[in-house]
């Protein structure tokens, strides 16, 4: 028998191995040994979403962050009753919803799958559990996330600077 019955209940071993290989490629799980990745794999939930399906809605309590394995996710925010703007497009190997890992707050924006998408979900309770059981691995995950968020912040600052320059040059030309 290739796979015993219980393997199908708890996830076939082959799928587990391929998931570990995938986790290795993700920046969030950088610097982990294969053994540590096995521990991480245990707390990762793989979810499949159809194109147009909601991952989470604005103002809902967030359970954790998501990493895009396949597909694309649009982050949108309602600015009016029937108008919403797209804040970002999250592609493969990128993550979103990380604020829910830090604090139990309502989601600040919505996330919707743009195409058929596979996501890896990392839930706050599981990470908290890991902090107790395996603090070194949990601390490395959090440091990696913080590093990537910092990179995003630098990028956002640069974008803001460009926008401000554009705005001031526009104001300058209109003053003339």
């Amino acid at each position: 028998m290739k796979n015993p019955l219980w393997a199908y209940i708890f996830g076939p071993p082959k799928e587990k191995q391929s998931m570990i290989e995938l986790l290795k490629e993700l920046p969030v799980f950088d610097g982990f040994s294969d053994r540590e990745l096995v521990t991480i794999e245990r707390i990762i939930h793989q979810r499949r979403y159809n194109a147009g399906e909601m991952v989470f809605g604005e103002d809902m309590l967030g359970a954790g962050m998501y990493i895009v394995k396949e597909g694309e996710v649009a982050i949108t925010k309602k600015i009016d009753e029937d108008k919403e703007i797209e804040l970002a497009l999250i592609g493969e190997r990128n993550f979103f919803g990380e604020m829910a890992l830090i604090d139990e707050m309502p989601r600040s924006a919505s996330a919707k799958a743009n195409k058929d998408t596979i996501l890896f979900a990392l839930c706050k309770p599981d990470l908290e559990n890991m902090m107790e059981r395996n603090p070194k691995v949990a601390a490395t995950i959090i440091t990696n996330i913080a590093r990537l968020v910092c990179k995003r912040l630098v990028q956002a600052n640069e974008n803001l600077e460009v926008l401000e320059k554009k705005l001031s040059s526009k104001e300058g030309s209109s003053d003339k």
């Binding site: 209940i9 708890f10 809902m60």
Partner: peptide
């Protein structure tokens, strides 16, 4: 693992709520 298997059968719209 039992919990993970249980969450696997939960529909996407109730996944976060069920986990919490």
């Amino acid at each position: 693992l039992i919990l993970k298997a249980f969450l696997r059968i939960i529909p996407n719209s109730y996944f976060e709520m069920s986990a919490l």
